[in-house]
Each structure stands twice: as structure tokens, then as C-alpha cells.
Amino acid sequence: MEHVIELRSVERSFVTEPDFADRVASMFGAKSNAKTLRAVDGIDLTIGPSEVVGLVGESGCGKSTLGRIVAGILPQDKGDVLFNGRMLADKTKLKDGSGLGIQMIFQNPASALDPRQKIGDAIAEAPVAHGLTQRSGARKFALSALQRVGLGEDALDRFPHEFSGGQRQRICIARALAVDPRVVVCDEAVASLDVSIQAQIINLFLDLKQELNLSYLFISHDISVIEHVADRVAVMYLGQIVEIGATRELLENPQHPYTKALLAEVPTLDKNLSEEHALKGELPSPLNPPSGCRFHTRCPVATATCRLERPALEHWKCDHQVRCHVVTAGKQNSGC
């Protein structure tokens, strides 16, 4: 299968800004104590045509950073991002439209729209700039984009504040789709919406996928949302993918102790949370991640090996990979 998106060992670090004391100290020749945070640490990931890949993890695990790298709005430090088999150049420096095929939708639609720009102008701005439509036809173009997400002509001349949260998210979706992308990165795109509105937007995403053969990278902390929309799921912990597989297989048969704990902690209507904590402790600081397996400090089955050696992402089944010494120990690669 041809991949629409392929990530090869992508890495991205952030360095803490030196504060005033640090700057003064460095003037006098002190060694800089800037800390490096590896937000994304060696990610390999593919997204196929009309495939939805879900990305889950706790806050601070690097899922949003990865989403931004895929969307091309944040350059990676190392590794390659391929779009339709071609290397994606640093889009933040390019204005030629080569990255138009990948669009992003954010969590908060209120801050993603310019409060003083009319909806019609917001939607037509990019297509006009990239020559997808003439300025004279911009209004008609924007209207057809709005109709695709269930809004009408009366929306064209209104401002963002005149819409509800759900409608604003529809506008953001219309704007992202106006440039005819192949891939849409959704970063917590339904998290800020109420349950009844969230369902409408999820339905819209699924309809548009069918209609336009879109691929999605769907980032969410809500596993039930991911379970509903995704074909494959990747679980991230401290910058790494610790488990990835077909949605059903992974959620019904989780192997990594972190995935198991994460699934056990989701409050649902039909099961009772156990009395015991499924996960001990808190997420370690990503500025100073644990040695060996990054999860060993909270892992119920960690061994001495886990404290020393970094596990690799290995096949558990053909459609299921796990990064865990304990799970993969003694298990042969199943020829995938």
C-alpha cells in the first residue's frame, strides 16, 4: 500500500530559555544549564489513503508536537516526513503551496479564527492566495466549502463570535478543506465541544472521509473517540510510541502495561473503576526521562533489564507492535 504520510525516525527537541540569572551567569563564563526536552523521540509512523490513525497519550507525551510536525507547521530536528512518497520540505519557510495537501484543525475553534475577519473571507483567503480560485469567484467558492460542512449562505458575511462552538469548529473544518487536502491533522478537534455537539462533528469527520477519501491523524486524549473513528491507534508515552496496532486488536488485546493502565482508567457507563490505582505515581518530567524503558518507574512488571536497556518497538502480531522487554521477551518476530 502506498502511504500518504510516512515518518522516518522523526525527532524534535526543545531547549529551555535561559532565565535572567542564567544569562548573567553565562556572561561570567558559567556553563549554560539549559535543559533539553525531547518532545518527539524517534517516531516511525505511516498513514495510508483514507486511513484514520489515532494518537493517544497523556498531556506532555508529545502528541501535539508530532501532529504539528506532520502538518508541517513545526520543523523536525531529525528524520524525514514524506507526503505521497516525496520529502516534505520545511513548509514553514515555503510559500509555494507544496504543503497544502496536509491541513490541521485545532482544539479551540475560537482562537483559530480571526475575530475580525468575515467567515467567507477566512475560508477563501488561502485558496485565492494559492490560485485555486479567482478573487471574483471567491464568494461562490467559500459558499460551496461551507455547504460541505452543513452551513449556509448567511454564514458568509458573519463574524466568528456570532457562531456557537460547534458551528465555529465546522467553519474551521470548511477552511481546512477549502484547499483540497489529502490529509487532515485533528489535534483534540472535538475536545472542547459538548457531548451532543461532539457527536455531530465526529459524524461530519466520518462523512467527509468517505466523500473525499481523506486520511486523518486524529489526536485525542479521549480513547472512546479514538476507538470510534480510528483504523489504527498509536499510544505515546514521553515522546515515543509504546504500542501501535489496528484499533480493535489493540483496544481488546492491549499488551503494553501503560496501554493496559490507560484503558483501565477510562470512566465508562458500564464498568466500575477498580479500587486500586492502575498506574502508580505521576508522569516523570520529560526534561529528565527515566533511563532504559521510560515507563519502568510506573510499571508493575518492570525488571532489572527495563531499568537499563531501552526497548525497541517490536512486532507482537502482524498488525500490532509493542515497545516492552517483558512482552516481547521470548517471543519470535512473527515474520512481519
Partner: peptide, 19 residues
């Protein structure tokens, strides 16, 4: 409307309109 109460990939039940 809760995604957990629907079959994966199926359309979710949604309450029409807004508050």
C-alpha cells in the same frame, strides 16, 4: 451521543441543533 455507546465507524447518534 457518547462514542463509546456506538459501533466503531458507524454514525453517532446526535441531538440535532444546538443549545
Amino acid at each position: 451521543s457518547m462514542p463509546a455507546n456506538a459501533l466503531p465507524g458507524e454514525r453517532l447518534h446526535s441531538i440535532p441543533g444546538g443549545l
